[in-house]
Design a protein around this nucleic acid. Structure first.
Lengths: 204, 204
DNA sequence: CTTTTATATGAACATTCGTTCAGTTAGGCT
DNA sequence: AGCCTAACTGAACGAATGTTCATATAAAAG
């Protein structure tokens, strides 16, 4: 009754997600066929439908999973900074730095998922699009809240918090277009360079 | 012999490009069929092949046209700033501001072309990809040259010019994800907000 | 008017697509 | 041993894909 041990492989489900993620990121959702995914997994196309009702649901599930992970990881990260009480002005700057470094680190660890999450929005059905958009907005609001508190405390100069939020995220996302691990710069250095720019762009 | 006046419409060629651009931007290259493009133009699919050898060439032509326009427009814009001789330190800042405002303005005027130009790179054949990449690098070098001169003159603080170039362009590109003409902010205000952030992010 | 030529049609082509499903396989349970 | 059930195959489905081409059309050229 309960799945104690899979009959054949026991890991086909996860592997489908892994291979689909890779192929969607590489060639785009519309350009990848179910047969390509099945072949990468080492299975026939029909077998995929034991794990997903259809192709669209597979895409949505990957995107939703990524966004959920992102939010969970940030909330965990942020908790550490809000726990320790200290000077509010220093704390909001520390939170902004934490967000900057977290965003870069998290996204560089999952280039394929990130690529898909903002590249394949237009291939989602209307309902699925709304759901993902909502998760994205939740993440943006996390940064925007930091900026607004920084303005309130007088430690940040931000003419328009909404625009600044989007500008910062766009800038940080840019790191994915060029960073390759093992390259000229270490992850730590990259984080530092971007944090320097973010910090200064909002200096009072 | 020479095409004096088109037999039927005389504007089918341009209209194919217009509609293909719109559809590619909206649904993605792979998700748009030649029949959809033809239908949008008001013609049968076979007629498209009087204007393009195949679908791939149509995509490449659109991207190449966009990048060429971009470079030509910037070089014309920059010429105005290099002509008038004045204080070099003030001039390099003026050039940076000009680039920032130009980039925002130019890109907001062609959202579809911009979208395609960096979204459909993976759908280009190898040769076509190389060609577009080269044009893109040429544009990036224009900004990088400004930053390097700014560093040389001591008016800009840029730890890594290559990264800063990509970071600025990524940030400016972000404007396209949210700006809608007729919205809360005018184009002039948007330019100002972004220029403020760019300038400060590189302050000495 | 006749000929030429650019332009468009619409049917046809070989493939490929997402998806379904009856049948096979093989391990777990009683 | 015999049954059960989840996993997978392999063939099949109708629909859609990019592209070709013989044919029709109508305006321009002579």
């Amino acid at each position: 009754m309960a799945r104690t041990q899979g009959s054949h492989s026991d890991i086909t489900g996860p592997r489908i997600r892994t291979e689909a993620l890779r192929l969607f990121a590489q060639h785009g959702y519309a350009a990848v066929s179910m047969r390509q995914i099945a072949s990468a997994v080492g299975v026939q196309a029909g077998a995929l439908y034991n794990y997903t009702p259809d192709k669209q649901s597979l895409l949505f599930s990957l995107m939703e999973g990524h966004m959920t992970e992102l939010l969970a990881a940030w909330h965990e990260q942020e908790a550490a900074y809000t726990a320790e009480a200290s000077d509010p002005k220093a704390k909001v700057l520390a939170r902004l730095e934490a967000f900057t470094r977290f965003h870069i680190r998290f996204h560089l660890e999952r280039p394929d998922a990130v690529f898909i999450a903002y590249m394949e929005l237009r291939n989602l059905s209307e309902d699925n699009f709304t759901a993902i958009e909502s998760l994205r907005r939740e993440y943006e609001n996390a940064l925007q809240a930091i900026l607004k508190e920084g303005v309130r405390l007088g430690v940040l100069h931000v003419p328009d918090p909404k625009i600044a939020t989007l500008a910062v995220i766009a800038m940080l996302n840019g790191v994915m277009t060029w960073y390759r691990s093992g390259g000229r710069l270490s992850l730590e250095e990259v984080e530092g360079i971007y944090w320097d720019m973010v910090k200064k762009s909002m200096q009072v």
